[in-house]
């Protein structure tokens, strides 16, 4: 694995290796191989948990961490991203996590940068968020053992969701039964893009589901002309206790990449209940998964227990 840009470009073995390393880090069975390497965090879009998670992962690995603050950066002075990255490499940066509003920004820059800095996609536009999909997968394995033939339903604003896309890419590799549920105005522009089952009706979508993953509905979007108010979404798609009990599998797990809009896509009651705790465990697992990603990119190797 050269870089982590999206799930499509890494193999099943790469994924399994990251999961194994993450487990070892979580259980304290693995030491860092990348102490004193330098990690730069270039977050050009708001982020709380992904940024903190990578930062803590880097700290736990004993790495030096540079926060590349977008508001003061030379990017604002018009320097191209390629030039910035090549400079960072010569300053001593070994790995770079980029979060950006533009889809594919890393794919484009990777073609132009001539030096061997390691790239991690921390979420780009509406393209991919591979570390999130990996930590989601890790959490699913912890909770339900395997995803093969398990019904996994993703509900919410899929059209703008890089999390949904990376999850679909990953879960497809492991033969999960993937269902997507959204109102037409938040659905993917093109159904042929992914080989999954599409639903408008949330009851049908979560019927017998082993995993229900709610996505953040972006309120600001509902102010645009082609969308009804967010209350319209809540009325038909809010995941609450009653809905889960009545339709989903008994041992269903509820996931959310965060940050959740309480009482829009998920009821507050559910978030505060034991069922909602998985969402916090996702955040916790994220640190170990990101340790595994950084360690693997910079050191390589296959985990042997």
């Amino acid at each position: 694995m050269e870089h982590l840009i999206d799930i499509q470009s890494i193999s099943k073995q790469d994924i399994e290796n990251i999961i194994n390393f993450a487990k070892a880090f979580k259980e304290g069975k693995k030491e860092s191989d990348v102490k004193s390497k330098t990690l730069a965090l270039m977050f050009c879009e708001n982020s709380t948990r992904t940024k903190c998670s990578f930062e803590i992962a880097g700290q736990k690995l004993g790495m030096n961490i540079i926060n590349f603050d977008d508001t003061h950066s030379s990017l604002l002075k018009g320097e191209s991203l390629k030039d910035t990255i090549e400079n960072l490499y010569f300053i001593g940066v070994n790995a770079l996590v980029i979060r950006h509003t533009l889809s594919g920004i890393i794919n484009n820059v990777l073609r132009l940068v001539k030096y061997p800095v390691k790239f991690v996609n921390g979420g780009d536009g509406t393209h991919a968020h591979p570390s999130q999909a990996l930590l989601d997968y890790y959490t699913m394995l912890e909770k339900i053992g395997t995803v093969e033939n398990k019904k996994i339903t993703i509900v919410g604003d899929v059209s703008h969701s890089r999390v949904a896309k990376s999850n679909i890419a990953l879960l497809s590799k492991f033969n999960a039964d993937i269902h997507i549920c959204a109102p037409s105005y938040l659905q993917f522009e093109n159904f042929e893009a992914f080989n999954v089952k599409y639903h408008n009706d949330v009851k049908e979508a979560i019927e017998g589901a082993n995993v229900v993953m709610a996505l953040r509905v972006q309120n600001e979007r509902h102010e645009k002309e082609c969308y009804p108010d967010s209350s319209e979404y809540k009325r038909l798609y809010e995941i609450d206790m009653e809905l889960l009990k009545k339709y989903a599998a008994n041992d269903v797990i509820l996931m959310h990449p965060g940050p959740a809009n309480r009482n829009i896509e998920v009821s507050g009651e559910l978030l505060d209940n034991q069922v909602g705790k998985t969402i916090l465990e996702q955040a916790q697992n994220g640190v170990y998964v990101r340790m595994a990603i950084l360690n693997t990119l910079l050191k390589g190797g296959v985990y042997a227990a």
Partner: peptide, 13 residues
Amino acid sequence: NEGKISTRLGLKG
């Protein structure tokens, strides 16, 4: 172009 490629890539179609 708007289609499966724009959806996959996350680009406006």
